[in-house]
Computed example of a mutant assay.
Amino acid sequence: MGFLDRVWGALRGAIPGLFRSTLPAPPDWAAGRGRILLVGPTGAGKSALVNAVLGEEAARSEAGAPVTAGTRWYGRESGLGLALGDTRGLEAAESAAQVARLEAAIAEAGPARRPHLVWLVVNAEGGRAFAGEGTLAAFAEALRRVGIPFLVVLTHAEPGAEAHARLRARVAEAMGDLPVIAVNTRPLLGEGGAVLLPAHGLQELLTASRPFLPG
């Protein structure tokens, strides 16, 4: 048993009910769709990723403090056959507790309420890449125990399998050998409109996700 598992176990015993949580049931329109839950630190770009995948400004997206208060589901009007659950951003000061609540909620949820797939979203830029370091790795282990597949999505990332090699190595060390998809949802433009970083990776992400989804 890992250190975080022991800490969470002690906290659960010391403060009954602290980690009792329910995963918000997907809405009725999500029945029959592939349910994907997005989890990651604040500022990782989860809401922007939702908007880019769906091709519409469905989820409110801003920098700074968490914009998404709880899990919100998007994709009702999309023809992709997906329901995307955008979760509240993990905060460094409370991320262990947040992850523990998510873990408990998913473990307690029935098949009709569980996601088919989880995207662990990490900002590839600077120090925000692993805010609340260790918690996503612990959550990945929880997902393995429950039997829910997951992918790591690097946002604001340069294209190519060789890009962000150091970060990819950290992900592999923390979570094992699993797919890591690099994505940039909007082109980064420089002076005079020159494209410094193109939008890329969305199709690769969807292609990697489809084997885990129904239909």
Rank of each mutant, 00 (worst) to 15 (best):
residue 3 F to I: 10
residue 3 F to L: 12
residue 4 L to R: 12
residue 10 A to I: 07
residue 11 L to R: 14
residue 12 R to K: 12
residue 13 G to T: 05
residue 14 A to L: 12
residue 20 R to E: 15
residue 24 P to V: 09
residue 25 A to K: 13
residue 27 P to N: 01
residue 34 G to T: 03
residue 36 I to K: 06
residue 39 V to G: 04
residue 46 K to L: 04
residue 46 K to C: 04
residue 50 V to W: 05
residue 56 E to F: 00
residue 57 E to W: 00
residue 64 G to N: 06
residue 67 V to K: 05
residue 71 T to F: 05
residue 72 R to Y: 02
residue 73 W to D: 01
residue 82 L to W: 04
residue 84 L to W: 06
residue 90 L to S: 07
residue 90 L to P: 03
residue 98 Q to G: 11
residue 104 A to E: 15
residue 106 I to L: 15
residue 110 G to Q: 08
residue 113 R to A: 15
residue 115 P to S: 06
residue 115 P to N: 12
residue 116 H to G: 10
residue 119 W to C: 08
residue 125 E to G: 01
residue 126 G to T: 03
residue 130 F to W: 04
residue 131 A to H: 09
residue 142 A to D: 01
residue 142 A to W: 02
residue 144 R to L: 11
residue 146 V to L: 03
residue 147 G to E: 07
residue 147 G to C: 13
residue 149 P to D: 06
residue 152 V to Y: 10
residue 152 V to W: 10
residue 153 V to P: 00
residue 153 V to E: 09
residue 153 V to H: 03
residue 154 L to V: 00
residue 154 L to G: 10
residue 161 A to D: 14
residue 162 E to P: 00
residue 166 R to D: 14
residue 170 R to S: 11
residue 170 R to L: 06
residue 171 V to M: 08
residue 172 A to K: 13
residue 177 D to T: 15
residue 179 P to W: 13
residue 180 V to P: 00
residue 181 I to N: 03
residue 182 A to T: 05
residue 183 V to R: 08
residue 184 N to F: 01
residue 185 T to W: 01
residue 197 L to K: 09
residue 197 L to S: 07
residue 197 L to M: 14
residue 198 P to A: 14
residue 199 A to Q: 13
residue 203 Q to I: 08
residue 205 L to N: 07
residue 206 L to S: 11
residue 208 A to R: 13
residue 208 A to W: 04
